[in-house]
Design a protein around this nucleic acid. Structure first.
Lengths: 221, 221
DNA sequence: CCGGTTTCGGTACTGAGTCCATAATGAGTC
DNA sequence: GACTCATTATGGACTCAGTACCGAAACCGG
């Protein structure tokens, strides 16, 4: 609904197209590490960008060369998985119905996610002050995924379905997947298979929309 | 997932329990009007809180006595409808299955919404700079609705269903409803019936979860 | 050595949101 | 009426994220 270009709000993600110019001072990872340390020490809200930059031995402005916002630091691991979504969508078999393809794609994406990769804000139980900012920053990820799924679905249904229904299916599926992923992340050490959890949550949604998404003729109104 | 108390992030919503104390200087509505005017004149991003307060003839801090954030002004009408959700849930018949109750409740809520009440950020087409902030502020509304629905559902299924599934159903339904509502709001003058649109979007979700939500025994794992 | 290009880093600014102390205003109480 | 007490208004000062600008590194090709 918002844009179409990218997933995160990263400023310069990873484009090693260095054609001349001053070389990077090894910063990106350094900043992530510095931030993680400080978050553990003083919490997210209690850490300023100045402190992060300072610990990383870097100017404050340089921080914004790598991250568009402080809150992007909360979603580092997740962003990597989300970045794989376009590839997963491309690889999704053409031989199944749209609703099944949707389910498979999302589950496949979840399967790619490292078992240990859990956002800092969830692994450490901060004084709850973060939650709002964490979720707020998560919204752009949600929208990116939902948007990609909607595009994928729209292509598969080839205009046979009301666009609003297509987007509703994509959004609802994303919401269900996010719910499962959140529960999985909060489950602590003995958490099971993310893909299985996600599939359990999205399967009903995909099934519910199947009759409309998989119809070859425009449905309803 | 976040909290349980309220819908909006309003500071002092409406508790006319005035037992002594300095009377309110008629401000709340005055502030809303001043803000609406300024938004139309200069857009949301181009308007500062100082300007709003000044036009309302009020100190800057007073603004924060009525609204917790500038972005709350974008969701005024919607907040009123959301505030009616608890009542709608209470009135929802006990005679239907949980999944049907969910669908009915959400549709009933949509039916209450005034046909002309569309968030400023959507009715006027601002230079798109707002969108992000608009949605970001909308997140707390989304979460409030989803949380309320999850609680409602949890009560109806009486522990027969995995809580994660319950929340997935609530979140997915909310997402579908929000999608429909957004499309409805953007449809311009000839938009039809909101409740019908919402029902069209959420029905598949509710149907999809029906077999699990309506089971009298724990399902699956 | 000379543009071109990229990153780095400092200064300065805007504006949201918070904190705090103080005044204003009214309701109850004696 | 005088004295609390609770509530709201308001102004000043502050923190900090995010933006804009600019000049200085640092590397590239020629």
């Amino acid at each position: 609904m918002t844009d179409s270009d990218a997933l995160g709000t990263d400023a310069r993600t990873e484009a090693p197209r260095a054609r001349g110019g001053r070389p990077r001072a090894s910063s990106r990872r350094t900043l992530e590490d510095a931030a993680s340390e400080l978050f553990l020490e003083q919490g997210y809200a209690g850490t300023t960008i100045d402190q992060i930059a300072q610990r990383a031995g870097v100017g404050r402005n340089t921080f914004f060369n790598y991250f568009a916002a402080k809150s992007d630091l909360l979603w580092l691991d997740v962003d990597e998985t989300i970045a794989a979504l376009p590839g997963v969508l491309d690889e999704t078999s053409e031989d199944v119905s749209p609703s099944a393809a949707l389910e498979r794609a999302v589950t496949a994406l979840a399967a790619r996610h490292p078992h240990s990769a859990v956002p800092i804000a969830l692994s450490q139980r901060e004084p709850m002050a973060t939650q709002e900012e964490f979720l707020s920053a998560g919204l752009s990820r949600f929208l990116a995924v939902a948007h990609a799924l909607a595009g994928f679905l729209a292509e598969r249904v080839e205009g046979h379905v009301d666009p609003t229904i297509v987007r509703a299916a994509a959004n609802a599926t994303t919401a269900a997947a996010a719910t499962a992923a959140g529960a999985w992340a909060l489950a602590g050490v003995e958490r099971g298979d993310l893909a299985a959890e996600v599939d359990r949550a999205i399967a009903p949604v995909c099934r519910g929309f199947a009759s409309q998404l998989d119809a070859r003729r425009p449905t309803g109104a």
